[in-house]
């Protein structure tokens, strides 16, 4: 059913901390490894050793340069499905393959129903859906729906593969509708943003902005000057050495 639920019982999603993401792509390949052999069709790679290698990925890392005054910086930016509350990809689906789960808010594709028209990928402003070239069905992040409830995995591993593997712990998974959850607290305590709010998709996933970067001139206490410390001491520069062990 491709009408969106009025509300979902939970809002499972990711909170991604741009402050610590170093762009290592761990979440990218770990996601692919889990999902190519998990839910639905494998994530195919065409021309894997050839001239035009190209595959399906459910999570990709971009990087952006910022430019503000003298401080140029690079921000690494992981992006996967945001599991929007008002997911435009779901309502456009003509076959009922795309849906948003009432129980936890995960946006999924029932691949058995997908006819591969690709309209949902067009509808998503974020580029979160990719067509599998061999099966002809739409692939997207499932929030590792086959991990998070999987009784064959130890409890501590019941989280998305990307979260489990992230070396900088830049990814958090939880229920964003529960104000007491870790993810909700992160969103409340840090500067969190929706991506493209103007698209009115109401994404569940949240991005925590990097903290301010600054130049080294601003390091240390601004009113503290090493050189003045040297001259302030009686006798001037290096008198501290003469006085070093008096009475010691």
């Amino acid at each position: 059913m491709t009408s969106l639920p009025k509300s979902t019982e939970r809002k499972l999603g990711l909170v991604i901390d741009l402050d610590v993401c170093v762009g290592c792509h761990a979440c990218v390949t770990n996601c692919k490894a889990w999902n190519t052999s998990g839910y639905g069709a494998p994530l195919a790679d065409e021309s894997p050793y050839g001239n035009d290698p190209s595959g399906v990925w459910l999570n990709r890392i971009h990087s952006f340069e910022t430019e503000k005054g003298e401080m140029n910086a690079l921000v690494h930016f992981p992006k996967s499905c945001l599991h929007c509350d008002d997911a435009p990809c779901v309502t456009v689906c003509p076959t009922g393959a795309s849906y948003k789960r009432v129980s936890d808010g995960i946006v999924l594709v029932d691949e058995a129903k997908c006819m591969g028209c690709g309209l949902c990928a067009w509808a998503c402003p974020y580029g979160a859906r990719e067509m599998d070239p061999t099966e002809g069905v739409m692939k997207k992040c499932t929030l590792c729906v086959d991990r998070i409830y999987n009784k064959n995995l130890p409890e501590e591993d019941r989280e998305p593969a990307c979260v489990r593997t992230c070396p900088t712990n830049a990814r958090f998974f939880g229920d964003l509708s529960d104000p007491d959850s870790e993810v909700s607290k992160l969103v409340a305590n840090r500067e969190a943003v929706d991506l493209m709010p103007e698209q009115e998709t109401n994404p569940v996933n949240q991005y925590l902005l990097p903290t301010e970067r600054y130049g080294a001139e601003q390091l240390g206490s601004p009113d503290f000057n090493l050189a003045s410390l040297a001259t302030q001491k009686p006798g001037g520069i290096l008198s501290w050495i003469d006085n070093l062990f008096n009475g010691n």
Partner: peptide
């Protein structure tokens, strides 16, 4: 798209 507007001009650097 990135939410990074407060950091000034944003330019895509490397694609994934």
């Amino acid at each position: 798209a990135t939410g990074l507007g407060k950091f000034g001009n944003i330019t895509p650097f490397e694609p994934p």
